[in-house]
């Protein structure tokens, strides 16, 4: 097995021109797949390229380098204060050992419907900054992720940064993950919600569900129903019905599709606790 550790983007672009080269940003997914014989070839690690790492705030937008580790995110005061839902999602991802190695960009590029950071990124309206030797483009996270395990990355292109517009300080940020145990568990269903309340009336709401469809699912129907309505159990129950119709879950060893569908709706009911 050949592994490369370029220190600059220039070196990286040269390496990526070789055929059959996988980009690695942490490896907590990639190396598991390799061990299972699901992928082979050369590995090009991004961890030594300084431009790809770090957390910066500029004009209400947080820019997070793709190879920023999840532990770095947990230790970022800005993330803790301004993006508590992302902070919570990261805290429940894997174990300390996994978080020391795994990166935000890696979690996005794996593009699993169960990726723990993804619902928060969808709900926050995050954007992906893609870089190649000659181009730079910006995609919404929902465009970046094309399907289970698939992204919009072209050959020779990498995910360089994630841009997250910071929500208003008084916005409610809610994240809940359902796993089969309290640590080191793959999500069975999850909900990330950002909402602005005017008294008990919902003015703006974004709902993103994980593990209940081929990709993270924004539920526009439920969002539309709840907008300008009061945050009551009855309204939430109605919206939960819309969620259950919208999701496309599967059966697997962790849970049945029926369970995922029911719980996706149920998770919404928890929002009632934010009612003033």
């Amino acid at each position: 097995m050949s592994a490369y550790l370029p220190g600059t983007l220039t070196d990286l672009w040269d390496l990526l021109e070789e055929a059959d080269t996988a980009v690695m940003a942490g490896g907590t997914d990639l190396l598991v797949r390799r061990r299972a014989g699901k992928c082979a070839g050369r590995i090009c690690c991004l961890e030594r390229i300084p431009e790809l790492r770090g957390v910066q705030e500029e004009e209400g937008v947080l820019e997070i380098g793709a190879t920023t580790t999840l532990t770095d995110l947990l230790e970022s005061a800005t993330v803790a204060a301004r993006l508590p839902m992302l902070h919570q999602a990261v805290r429940q991802l894997g174990s300390p050992l996994v978080r020391n190695q795994a990166t935000l960009g890696g979690n996005m590029c794996t593009a699993s419907p169960a990726g723990d950071t993804l619902p928060a990124l969808y709900a926050l309206g995050a954007q992906a900054v893609l870089l190649s030797r000659r181009t730079e483009r910006v995609l919404d996270v929902a465009e970046f992720i094309a399907g289970p395990g698939r992204t919009a990355l072209e050959p020779g292109e990498i995910l360089a940064r994630v841009r997250i517009p910071l929500p208003e300080p008084n916005a409610v940020q809610h994240f809940e993950k359902v796993g089969r145990r309290r640590a080191l568990a793959i999500s069975v269903a999850s909900l990330a919600a950002v909402l602005r309340l005017d008294g008990d009336v919902v003015r703006d709401i974004r709902l993103a569900f994980g593990s209940v469809a081929p990709t993270v699912l924004r539920c526009a129907e439920a969002e539309a129903w709840l907008t300008d309505r009061t945050l009551t159990a009855d309204n939430l129950r109605h919206a939960a019905g819309l969620v259950r119709s919208a999701v496309l879950p599967i059966d697997d060893v962790r849970a049945t599709a029926d369970y995922r569908r029911q719980v996706a709706g149920n998770l919404l009911l928890r929002l009632e606790t934010y009612r003033p």
Partner: peptide, 11 residues
């Protein structure tokens, strides 16, 4: 051990 779950210290 990713499909056969045993308890962790947090459970």
């Amino acid at each position: 051990l990713s499909t056969y779950l045993i308890p962790t210290s947090l459970d």
